Amino acid sequence: MSNLARFNPFHELRDPFSDDFFKGFAMRPMYRLMEGEPQMRLDLTEDEKNFFVKAEIPGVKKEDIKVSVDGNQVCLSAEVKKEKEEKQGSKIIRSERFFGSVSRTFTLDESVDQAAALAKYEDGVLQLTLPKKHNGQSHILKIS
């Protein structure tokens, strides 16, 4: 015999500290709370001929960014190096360093013409222009 429970959308408003309130609270990694967490935010748009990608990668040198395109799969990766030091007079109060990498991989609807693809990095924003590779062949399956 199964137990059926009626769904009440206002249950959490009535009892905000239910069992699920603290679920996973202790499991969150602490580095997520650190200042300067490496992130890569993407905007992906398209027109009839191209895909356009804008990726925000602040504080990274152009030499530390790698873009690879394989068919319709695009992978962006960057090495993040951050050092911060606070001094008060001749004393060092706080010194922090962060070294790591950040990457994003996504799949497009169509293949990319790798030979005509363009990449530009300026002011912390990576801009990609990925021309669509039209195969011109469509295959229609016969239903039996």
Rank of each mutant, 00 (worst) to 15 (best):
I92C: 04
L42K: 01
A55L: 08
I57M: 12
K62R: 06
Q39H: 14
D47L: 03
K61W: 06
P38E: 07
E56P: 00
I57C: 01
P38W: 07
R94Y: 11
L76E: 05
Q39P: 01
E35D: 15
V67Y: 08
S68I: 14
E83K: 13
A78C: 08
Q39S: 15
I57W: 02
V74K: 05
E56K: 06
V53S: 03
S95P: 02
S77Y: 07
I92K: 09
I65Y: 02
A78Y: 10
I93H: 04
R32P: 00
S77D: 08
E79S: 09
S95V: 09
D70E: 15
E96F: 10
C75R: 15
K91L: 09
A55W: 05
F52E: 03
E79H: 12
Q39D: 12
E56H: 09
M34Y: 14
K87M: 11
N72A: 13
K82W: 10
K84I: 11
Y31G: 05
R32C: 06
Q39K: 14
E79Y: 03
S95N: 13
I92R: 04
V69Q: 05
R41W: 05
E85H: 02
K61I: 00
Y31C: 08
E83G: 12
S95D: 12
K49F: 08
R94G: 11
K66C: 08
E63S: 06
V67M: 06
E37L: 14
L44P: 00
I93C: 01
V67N: 08
G71K: 08
F52V: 01
L44M: 05
Y31N: 14
E96G: 06
F51V: 01
V67C: 02
G71W: 03
K49A: 12
G59E: 06
E46Q: 10
G36V: 06
R94P: 02
Y31P: 11
K66T: 14
S68W: 04
I65W: 07
E96M: 14
E48N: 10
A55R: 08
E85I: 14
R41M: 10
F52K: 03
